[in-house]
Amino acid sequence: MNRLVTVANPEGLHMRVALMISECAKKYNATVTITKNTETVSARDVLQVLTLGAVPGVTLTIDAQGEQASEALNGICALFENNV
């Protein structure tokens, strides 16, 4: 399952945000990926999330698979909805 989110943080997806995403993704028994254009990375890996260089306004696809896919998707998307 997947959902589109928009980066609303005025500083983009910077390190502290990447850490929050990674920590959130690790809480669930699910494989969570983030895709920007054609690049897909693991949401659990801070270094990979930073490679997206996601600036404000960019649209990302959050995909979750596995036992807790729904909870993971809700958790990650909530971070974006709260403008992390």
Binding site: E11, G12, L13, H14, L47, L50, T51, G53, V55
Partner: peptide, 17 residues
């Protein structure tokens, strides 16, 4: 200049990966 900071982080992360 948050955009250039973000691009530097992106570069460092991409290379260190």
């Amino acid at each position: 200049e948050p955009a250039r900071h973000l691009r530097a982080l992106e570069l460092i992360a991409r290379q260190l990966r």
